[in-house]
Design a protein around this nucleic acid. Structure first.
Lengths: 106, 106
DNA sequence: TTGCCTAACTTCAACTTTGAAAGCTATAAC
DNA sequence: GTTATAGCTTTCAAAGTTGAAGTTAGGCAA
C-alpha cells in the first residue's frame, strides 16, 4: 500500500510519520498546550517558519492526527482538533519530557 | 551554553538531540537489537547511508549516548556501547513501538 | 472609500542536509 | 598479488529548511 515505509518495524513506521524536526512539537502544542488556531501554533517558542507550519498541519490532517474544523464564517477561521490517533502519541511526548527533565541538566 | 536549543522546553531539547529521521533508529538497534559494530548498524533493515551512519554515531558519542570502545587491535575494531543516558531513551522507543502497533495496523 | 487590522496562508531565493554510490585504509587470508 | 572484511570518507545532485515578503478575505473606523 504505502511504498514510503522504510521497514515494517512499528518504531520505524512511527518515525516515518512524526520523525522530523517539527511534527512532534506541533503535536505537543496541540495535545499539551491546547493550541488550536494557525496563529497559536505559530506563536510557540520554537518559531516554526509559517511555510513549514502550513505544510506540516496539512500532513497531520492527511495522516489522521488532526481534523480541520471551521469555527466561524465571514471570515472563515479554522481550528485544528486532535483525533484519537493524535492522543495516542501523548505517551511518546511524555516519555520525551521525562527524558529531558531527568537527563538534560539546567 | 548551547546556542543550539530552540527553547528551554524539555520535549524540544530532547527532539534537538534525537528528533531526526535516523537517530532513534540507531538507538533502537543499540538498545533493542543489541547492535554493536558499524557493520551491524549498517545492516539494519532501513538501510541508512554509511555517510549518515558515521555522522550520527559520532554525534551520539559526543552527546553521551554511546561510547566507542576498541575491542581488538590489528586491525583495530570498535564496539559502540550504550550509556545510562541512552538507556533512559528506551521508554520513548517503547512508547513509539506501542503507538505503531496499535495505531498503524495493516 | 480609503486605510489599517487580523488570520491563515503562499511564494521564493539562499542555504543546509540527505541519499546513493564509489573510494580509501589497514589488516588478514589465500 | 588478489580478494575479503571492517570502518569509515568523499562526492554531488536532489530534497528539505529558513526567513522574509507577499497574498487573500473580510472587519472596522474615520
Amino acid at each position: 500500500m504505502h511504498a514510503s515505509h522504510r521497514s515494517p518495524c512499528p518504531i520505524a513506521r512511527t518515525l516515518d510519520l512524526v520523525g522530523d524536526k517539527w511534527t512532534l512539537l506541533i503535536l505537543r502544542d496541540a495535545l499539551v498546550f491546547k493550541a488550536k488556531s494557525f496563529a497559536e501554533f505559530e506563536q510557540s517558542p520554537e518559531k516554526i517558519p509559517t511555510s513549514l507550519l502550513a505544510e506540516r498541519l496539512k500532513r497531520l490532517v492527511e495522516n489522521g492526527f488532526l481534523t480541520k474544523v471551521p469555527y466561524q464564517e465571514k471570515p472563515v477561521r479554522y481550528h485544528y482538533v486532535t483525533t484519537e490517533k493524535a492522543k495516542a502519541v501523548l505517551p511518546v511526548i511524555r516519555a520525551m519530557q521525562k527524558f529531558g527533565e531527568t537527563q538534560l541538566d539546567t
